Amino acid sequence: MQINTMETIETLGTISFAISGTFAAMQRRLDPFGVLIIAFVTSIGGGTVRDLLIGDTPVAWMRDVNYCLLILLTSIATIFFKTHIKKFKVTLFLFDSLGLGLFTMLGIQKGMMFGLSPGICVALGTITGCFGGVIRDTLLNTIPLIFHKEVYATACILGGILYYALKYFHLKDDIATIAVISFIFILRIIVVRYKLALPKFVY
């Protein structure tokens, strides 16, 4: 994948998760500073964990201050327009799902740049997509979605498998990328719409 395409995905993912984090914080009635903190950790959490694991330091947001500015401006704009958005929960869900697909794909591509195996790349995609939300939910004192309901991390894993399947059949990389992002986004909507979930262990 071309570098500029990766930058586009990272920008869109950062915006999506910044909006998601801002709405989650506003739902819990945090003050403006708290809202900004939650927006930041939601946007950069997964990428930070990924970069630390593969030794790509300083981590991405430390090397490029523009991402911090992007999160700040996105969060402020979201706060400003909150009066025009009545269904916070739906908006949070849609942007969280979109960010999940975008960052999963970004994590996979980052692993490929480092020459890692497909399985590790899929794991990095899952970490990039999920861990910002895990940190967000932990700070907001809620059990992260990845641990207790819905198909969340599983969507990332299935998306990663789909990406390598499409690459196996020599589909153009840009098309495969869009297909995977769309797949994860649509899968999350279907799962929530029909209340699907993995089986739970009851003791």
Rank of each mutant, 00 (worst) to 15 (best):
Y152C: 14
L72I: 06
G46I: 01
A176C: 06
D64V: 05
F147A: 11
F33C: 12
T154P: 15
A39H: 08
K82F: 12
F88R: 11
A123D: 03
T42N: 08
L158V: 12
N141Q: 15
L72D: 01
Y67T: 13
I85A: 09
C130V: 05
I175N: 06
F88M: 15
F114A: 01
V35G: 08
L116F: 15
L100V: 01
L52S: 00
Q109V: 02
Y163K: 03
D51K: 05
G99R: 07
I79L: 08
I37T: 11
F93E: 08
F88A: 13
V151E: 04
S117L: 15
T104F: 03
Y168I: 01
R50P: 02
G111Y: 13
A123M: 08
F93L: 14
I175P: 06
G160S: 11
D56P: 14
F147T: 12
G159Q: 01
L52N: 14
A39K: 12
G34D: 02
I161P: 06
L92M: 14
W61A: 13
S43L: 10
V151L: 15
T126L: 15
M105I: 00
G125Y: 00
I146W: 11
G99E: 05
M62R: 10
V90A: 07
A155W: 01
L53I: 06
L70N: 01
M113R: 09
A155V: 00
G132R: 12
G132T: 09
G132D: 07
K82N: 07
S43A: 08
E150K: 11
L102Q: 03
G55R: 00
A176H: 03
I108Y: 00
N66D: 13
D51E: 13
T128F: 11
V35C: 13
C68R: 03
A60R: 06
G133V: 15
G45K: 03
G119R: 05
L52T: 05
I85C: 09
I108A: 00
H84D: 07
Y163A: 10
D137Q: 08
K86A: 07
I143F: 12
L139M: 13
I135S: 02
V41I: 06
V59I: 09
T91H: 14
M62Y: 11
M62E: 03
I127P: 04
L94A: 03
K110G: 01
T74I: 10
G111T: 09
F95N: 15
F81E: 05
I54K: 00
K110A: 05
R50M: 07
A153I: 07
G47F: 04
D31H: 12
N66H: 14
T138K: 09
G115E: 09
L92N: 15
I146K: 01
T104A: 12
A60M: 12
G125F: 00
S97G: 10
I127N: 10
L116H: 08
L94F: 04
L36Y: 13
